[in-house]
């Protein structure tokens, strides 16, 4: 399922909302998630899961073309931990 398919599905189920509004709402939700993470906040969605940041310490990298060592600074990467409901539902339907 892609973002446009998700918007399509939600628009069908929320037929009191114009398609444009559904599209805008989906984008607004995703943007909020991104913004929270970009400012270092966690996202906790009960029954779905939580998004948090994991720190990657600085390390020496290598330019794969030339082989020269390049220092890479520490950085944060997004991490998702599925919640109980999602975990159980995904695992129960074979």
């Amino acid at each position: 399922m892609t973002k446009s398919e998700l918007i399509e599905k939600l628009a069908q189920k929320q037929n009191h909302l114009p398609y444009k509004d559904v599209e805008f709402a989906v984008k607004a939700l995703l943007e909020q998630l991104v913004q929270a993470l970009a400012s270092g906040d966690r996202v906790e969605i009960r029954g779905f899961g939580s998004f948090s940041l994991h720190y990657r310490p600085p390390r020496m990298g290598r330019n794969p073309k030339t082989g020269t060592a390049v220092p890479l600074s520490g950085k944060y990467v997004p991490h998702f931990k599925p919640g109980k409901d999602l975990r159980e539902r995904v695992n129960s339907s074979e």
């Binding site: 399922m1 998700l6 939600l10 189920k13 929320q14 709402a25 989906v26 939700l29 969605i45 029954g47």
Partner: peptide, 9 residues
Amino acid sequence: IFFEEIRAA
């Protein structure tokens, strides 16, 4: 329902 659709998929 936004999160429910993702879960269902």
